[in-house]
Nucleic acid binder design. Sequence first.
DNA 1: GGCAAAATCCAAAGCGCTTTGAGAATGCCA
DNA 2: TGGCATTCTCAAAGCGCTTTGGATTTTGCC
Lengths: 343, 343
Amino acid sequence: MNLKELSTQLGLSQTTVSRALNGFPEVSEKTRERVLEAARSANYRPSPSAAHLATGKTRVIGHVIPTTQHRMINPHFSDFLAGASEGYAAAGYDMLLRAAEPEEEAAVYEDFVSSKRVGGVVVHGPRLQDSRIGLLRSLGLPFLVHGRTGAEDGSYPWLDVNNKEAFEIATNYLIKLGHTRIALINGLEEMTFAAQRRAGYDAALQNSGLTLDPELTFSADMVEPYGYEATSALLNQSNPPTAILCASILCAMGCVRALAENGMRPGKDISVMTFDDVLSFLQPSGNQRSSPAFTSMRSSIQDAGRRSAEILIDVIEGKSSDHTGVCWEAELVEGRTTSPLRD
Amino acid sequence: MNLKELSTQLGLSQTTVSRALNGFPEVSEKTRERVLEAARSANYRPSPSAAHLATGKTRVIGHVIPTTQHRMINPHFSDFLAGASEGYAAAGYDMLLRAAEPEEEAAVYEDFVSSKRVGGVVVHGPRLQDSRIGLLRSLGLPFLVHGRTGAEDGSYPWLDVNNKEAFEIATNYLIKLGHTRIALINGLEEMTFAAQRRAGYDAALQNSGLTLDPELTFSADMVEPYGYEATSALLNQSNPPTAILCASILCAMGCVRALAENGMRPGKDISVMTFDDVLSFLQPSGNQRSSPAFTSMRSSIQDAGRRSAEILIDVIEGKSSDHTGVCWEAELVEGRTTSPLRD
DNA sequence: GGCAAAATCCAAAGCGCTTTGAGAATGCCA
DNA sequence: TGGCATTCTCAAAGCGCTTTGGATTTTGCC
């Protein structure tokens, strides 16, 4: 069933039917009703390709999946996508995914533009210095950054968590509990989010007059085994920390695993705090209770995905161009993995 | 830059240029070279929408993301997608994602067909009785099932792991170690994969003359807190198991967490085995070693995604229609979480 | 009742590509 | 050198939609 068939069936022109379906004012309410009803019962869907060709607009948002050498798929990334896809679906948009090596990413964006495949893209994992912003701007491809670059100047749309503030709060929380040797198991510090977290951690320590011990800080991809490795290394030190701050709940789980192997209980023998992206597969489902119950700074990455989708669509449709940047505050959640320093 | 511009620039007709680009034999090698070079230097990309309109074919594969009430995004799902998107990218295909409530899934497929959005779909999470196969067949939309339905009759393409065999092997492995009280923390048994795993477990116990204790088996979504809950419940029983078999490494991690809280060490005080989908974010990255080192049945879900993509593309392009079903065997990996039953 | 204005509706062009059916150029042989 | 079979190239139609500019009908008002 296409427009032509539908319109002859209705005894109307294609113009009128198209206008009726797209909500143009030139068509009477009565006719519109009749058209909508016919379209519904005939199960008519306009062809997105034809519409794209005619209008130059496409209701598709592109995301590039980085395929690193380790084939590491960031679960944070997939939860973000899940949220975003809900946002898209609600607005009648679709999500297009393309796998690419990091060095191919620029070529993918160029391909998106010259083939007119997508109406906009979401940039993932921004770095302090990120050439993608300049590229996308020069390509004229609408975009939204999940996170920020280092030199974020309000000149492009982004959605981010206030990572510096979050880690300053977390570190201060541990300091207030009496801890002075606080380890940081951070993400890759070339990434803006991790650099900001580091800055928050540093600031809190300095404001309290504590010294930064380089032996207590780690920086790597936030996977479970990394949390395990880093914690094992910490426990082997001559003067181990009394509190550990993790950048992701995945690291935190690896951390707890290492502690358990060494007979240490988080919240009793040592304090553990983490940033919690509310990853879906770590949440209790159904009527089960009990999560790891970490003391954490919490901000749902899935919600961020949903909101990002909405903002980007607004940008593409020119509804509100004043979205330059949105910053969310993380929430402090007190769990059972922290306690005042003993003796 | 479009075809028309490119062809006038070359002093050729659109036909010739199109044929040169698409590898038709009617054009001389010399001309083809010239055309390809010009296309490259002009950074020309044909419009997928226009090509779609002209040919009726679209190089896009659809995936439906189920958005359950718990907003649970299966990390197994996302690792599969990561693999699949690599397979698509290699063949010049793209992946289209659409979020939908489970009950909307059928409507999404109908929409895909009537709007001609995709050239095929991958069906995720097949159940023993699954109406989607019949629907897709009647819609004439090419598809591949990741997994199988219960009544798999070789009449549709699928890629699956031999789950029954895998869990029979795993259970037998534990039995050989002397265990007789073996718990199963399984996935949702309405799903085929979980039902098959259950069947393998049952078969192994029966073949060894062991009795099935319903108190030792659990069935739910495979998230970490579920593994924790189930294990906690098991440890509270009057006659707790001496071995636990988990359906996912996520459950296994929850299981180990519960054990640790109760002062039990896997591989020492109790044996733990799991199915390992080789989830990327649990793998050590870089030069770190050490994973949880579970004794496990292993099969990479990311590889499955990649292969699924290849098969589905073959089906769509009519290259090989004899792909009715592909069954992979899981590999037994001996880790440090199992040991012979003591006393 | 008559006329302008408003409300409806329509034919046709065009988006960028593929592909059919036919024409021009080339090579080969007698 | 002429005639025929190949080889290469082309103009034009069509895919399903939107949108311009114009035609037709209805309405409002004196």
